[in-house]
C-alpha cells in the first residue's frame, strides 16, 4: 500500500510548513512542501495528492486581511482543481492562517455551496496577539481528522494568533452550521465549560475553535496540532501529562486515506 500523498502549501509568509510536513510524515504520509507558484504555473497539480494542508503564518504578510492574498491567488489560478479535490472526498486541513485561507476561499463553511466567503476570522476581542495553550472540547468526531478523539473529550493545544474570532455573516448561517453539526472543536475551561475570555482566547462566537465541512473532509481550526506532535512540545509536559494530542489529527487522517484511497 502506498502512503497517502500530502501537499503542504507554502508561499512567502507562511511559516508552519516545516512542522506540518514533519507531522504528516510522522503519521505515515508521504508529504511534500509545495510553493503555490508551482500550482499557478501548472508545474504541479493538486490531483497528484490525497490531502492538502494549509499551514499557519502570515501569508503575504497578512497586510490586507489574514489569508486573503493566498486565497485570491489560488482562486484566480486553481479554484476548479480545488473544487474537484473537495468533491472527490480527499482531505483538506488548515490551521491558524490556513483556517483563515479556507474561510477566504469559501471552502468553509460553504453552506451556499458556491465557494463564497461566508464568515470571517476577526481580530481577537483582547485586541492583541495571544500565544498560549488552550483547552478544547471535541464536539464532532465524524471528520477524519477528529476520528481518533471521543466526543466531549477535552484536549490541550497551543494557539498563536491575532485574528481568530469566528463570525458568521448572519444568524441563518450559524443555524446551518449547527444543524449540520459542523463545529469540530470549542474553547472551554479545564472542566469543559464554555466560558469567556481568557479561556475563549479570541471571543469566537459559541467558542468555535474549529469547523468541519458538511461532508466532513475539510477541517479548519485556529489551534496548532502540528506543533505538538508529541507531548514534549506541550507547555505543561513536565507536570507528567502523557497525551500526544497533536499526532492524533494526522494519524486519523492517514488512517482514513489508507482505507478510502
Amino acid at each position: 500500500m502506498n502512503s497517502p500523498k500530502v501537499a503542504v502549501l507554502t508561499m512567502e509568509g507562511t511559516n508552519n510548513e516545516e512542522e506540518a510536513f514533519q507531522s504528516w510524515k510522522g503519521a505515515g504520509a508521504d508529504a511534500e512542501i509545495i510553493h503555490i507558484k508551482k500550482l499557478e504555473s501548472g508545474l504541479r497539480k493538486l490531483e497528484e495528492f490525497d490531502a492538502i494542508f494549509f499551514p499557519g503564518g502570515f501569508s503575504a504578510g497578512d497586510y490586507v486581511r489574514a489569508g486573503a492574498i493566498m486565497a485570491s491567488r489560488l482562486r484566480a489560478s486553481v479554484m476548479e482543481d480545488i473544487e474537484n479535490f473537495v468533491d472527490s472526498g480527499k482531505l483538506i486541513m488548515g490551521s491558524c492562517n490556513g483556517f483563515q485561507v479556507l474561510i477566504e476561499l469559501g471552502l468553509i463553511p460553504n453552506i451556499g455551496k458556491n465557494y463564497e466567503r461566508e464568515a470571517a476570522l476577526a481580530t481577537n476581542l483582547s485586541n492583541r496577539f495571544e500565544a498560549r495553550t488552550v483547552y478544547l472540547k471535541i464536539t464532532n468526531n465524524l471528520c477524519p481528522f477528529l476520528k481518533k478523539f471521543k466526543i466531549n473529550q477535552i484536549i490541550r493545544l497551543p494557539i498563536a494568533h491575532f485574528e481568530g474570532r469566528f463570525i458568521p455573516k448572519d444568524e441563518d448561517l450559524l443555524k446551518e452550521i449547527l444543524k449540520n453539526n459542523m463545529i469540530g472543536l470549542k474553547y472551554v475551561d479545564p472542566y469543559g465549560k464554555e466560558v469567556d475570555y481568557p479561556w475563549n482566547p479570541n471571543g469566537s462566537i459559541m467558542n468555535i475553535a474549529g469547523l468541519c465541512s458538511k461532508s466532513g473532509n475539510i477541517l479548519g481550526l485556529m489551534p496548532h496540532p502540528e506543533r505538538v506532535f508529541t507531548k514534549y512540545t506541550h507547555s505543561d509536559w513536565t507536570r507528567g501529562n502523557e497525551e500526544d494530542y497533536g499526532q492524533l489529527f494526522f494519524k486519523g487522517a492517514v488512517e482514513y486515506l489508507n482505507e478510502k484511497f
Binding site: 511559516n15 508552519n16 516545516e18 512542522e19 514533519q22 507531522s23 499557519g56 500565544a131 498560549r132 495553550t133 488552550v134 483547552y135 490541550r156 497551543p158 498563536a160 479545564p190 481568557p198 479561556w199 496548532h224 502540528e226 506543533r227 505538538v228 506532535f229 514534549y232 512540545t233 507547555s235 505543561d236 509536559w237 513536565t238 507536570r239
Partner: peptide, 16 residues
C-alpha cells in the same frame, strides 16, 4: 511555539 520545537517555553505550569 512556531516551528514545533519548543520543549520548554518562557512560561510553564498548569494551563492558565
Amino acid at each position: 511555539t512556531v516551528r514545533g520545537n519548543t520543549v520548554i517555553p518562557p512560561f510553564t505550569g498548569i494551563i492558565g
